[in-house]
Every structure is written in structure tokens, then in C-alpha cells.
Simulated scan of single mutants.
Amino acid sequence: MLHDIVETADTSLQPATSKAVEQARRSTTRTHRRVVEYIHARDERRAVDLWRRHLAEAEGYLLGDDLVSTVADLLH
């Protein structure tokens, strides 16, 4: 489900395919993999810290001044 939400955000909010956009998408994928690794390792602190940091950084990158502010907004 997370992957589907991220893909929707990537393609609807950042449809360009520039080098910077591709680099951001690869970085996002690496971060998501690390979060899953931390969860599998039962390292709650690292998983939560990384996820919170990622969401804070991604919010500004993806949403900027856009009116979309929730997952529900994004999916409609």
C-alpha cells in the first residue's frame, strides 16, 4: 500500500523525468527499504526516526505550496 501511495505522489505531483527527479525517486526507494529493514530487525527507534525525518523532507519536496495536504487529497 505504501508503494502505491508513493507512486501516485511521484507521478501526480512530480511528473517530470529530470535527473533530479529520478535521483529523488531512487533516494526515496532506498529510504523505504531501510525503514523496512529496521522494522524487520525490530529496531523501532531507528524506523520511527528515519520515517519521521523522511516525511518531513518529502513533504516540502512533493507538496511545496500545493493545496494537497493529506493522503486522501492525493488519491482524489
Rank of each mutant, 00 (worst) to 15 (best):
S12G: 00
L13T: 00
L55Y: 03
R25D: 12
Y38C: 12
M1Y: 05
D65P: 00
S69I: 01
A16E: 15
A20Y: 04
R46D: 12
H32E: 04
R30Y: 03
S12F: 03
I39V: 15
H40S: 14
R42N: 10
L62A: 04
L67A: 12
M1V: 02
L67H: 08
T11S: 09
Q14W: 11
A24H: 06
V68H: 07
G64F: 02
E57D: 09
L50G: 11
A9G: 10
T29Q: 15
D49W: 08
R52T: 10
D10M: 01
A24Q: 09
E7F: 03
T70D: 02
E57Q: 04
T17Y: 06
R53N: 12
D49V: 13
A20I: 07
L55S: 05
Q23L: 09
Y61E: 00
T28Q: 12
V35D: 02
L55G: 07
V35F: 07
Q23P: 08
V68L: 04
H3L: 03
H54T: 10
R34A: 14
L62E: 01
E37N: 15
I39L: 15
L2K: 03
E57P: 00
L63T: 08
A41F: 10
A72L: 08
Q14Y: 05
E59R: 13
A56W: 08
V35I: 15
M1G: 00
W51D: 09
D43W: 04
V48F: 14
S69N: 10
A20L: 10
H76C: 00
A47C: 11
